[in-house]
Design a protein around this nucleic acid. Structure first.
Lengths: 181, 181
DNA sequence: CGTCTTTGTTCTTTATATAGAACGCTCGTT
DNA sequence: AACGAGCGTTCTATATAAAGAACAAAGACG
């Protein structure tokens, strides 16, 4: 990994903690992690577990991405130049659905790789004009308009004159639950 | 933590991996993590290390925030017993649209007052079964299903057996606003 | 002054995440 | 068939993250 990143993470935790006026011990207790663990983390040693990070983020009341915000180029929700994506919510295991808020800057476009075979994508435009769909059959949508297409082929999003915001919902094929022995 | 979150993380990794057309083994090699580790992760077992997550995110070319479901950062407010709503985004002034993530606990229901005359409401269900619409003409929707109705009459949301999550988009009538100051 | 409390550090110990090998499985190929 | 190559799973072994106790240092308060 990158020790610089770990150090940055440590400093960030320290900063956030102090901003909340919590002592290291206090945060450790509230978050339910060992003092030693937290101490090491803040010093940039170690390699925290998702669980640990989760508890800390929860107590510090910051979104997860903020803890990991990075100079290494993996900013919290930028995926491309002019493209931002945020996970909003998801369905149950039996009905796997992911909902994202996607923003595209004016003029930007993005080619999306196919998702799982059989998945569909549903778009609802909030703001701006956007061209979406398979590259040979796109549709142009404005605010309030929706479309739906198979997501297991390459598809494109392109913002026209204006910044675009849209809800993107990916509907995966239902899980054929296998019965454990 | 939440094992549901781990399962979601697993699903997401699987999806992203398949979208890149990588086999589990291939991704494991490219990312530099053990196959067994990745396999367990995708099955929702375990509690990955920041290092592991980092390498995977890097190879999958996704931001961290996307890999990790971030309900923590989601400031939601309770509006009724069993009802939670979060504002996700809004359209422009010229095209006023509000998008919300609404969650309703199993069995709960809510009667919504009419909105601005001429406004429409669009529903996309993420999770659970819900009954929505005007009280004399409701529709029952499951995950991935959508409906749209005039929102300037009283309407109802009712979660059936299961907790419900849905995207609610309110589309106000276009503003015939000319010449802004 | 002493002696409590609270600070953050660094020990030791235990739990477990990861690595690596071995497994059964499904395909192509000969 | 038999074989090999790929797949994803599940073993075992090892490295290490996390927990808990002990630590020195710095106030707080009588």
């Amino acid at each position: 990994m990158d020790i610089a990143m770990l150090e940055a993470l440590g400093r960030r935790i320290t900063t956030l903690r102090q901003a909340r006026e919590l002592s290291l011990s206090a945060l450790a207790v509230k978050a339910g992690v060992a003092k030693s663990n937290l101490s090491n983390l803040e010093q940039g040693r170690g390699n925290p577990t998702l669980d640990t990070l989760w508890r800390l983020a929860k107590q510090l009341k910051v979104p997860f991405g903020v803890l990991i915000a990075t100079e290494v180029g993996m900013a919290s929700s930028v995926i491309d130049n002019g493209m931002y994506i945020t996970l909003l919510g998801q369905g149950s295991a039996a009905h796997p659905i992911d909902a994202y808020l996607m923003r595209v800057e004016a003029g930007a476009s993005r080619l999306a790789e196919p998702h799982t075979c059989g998945s569909e994508e549903h778009i609802m435009v909030l703001k701006g004009e956007v061209e979406v769909g398979h590259h040979d059959a796109t549709r142009q949508l404005g605010p309030g308009e929706t479309t739906r297409f198979a997501a297991d082929h390459v598809h494109i999003y392109r913002a026209l004159d204006e910044d675009v915001a849209m809800l993107v919902t990916i509907i995966y094929p239902p899980v054929t639950q296998d019965h454990p022995a």
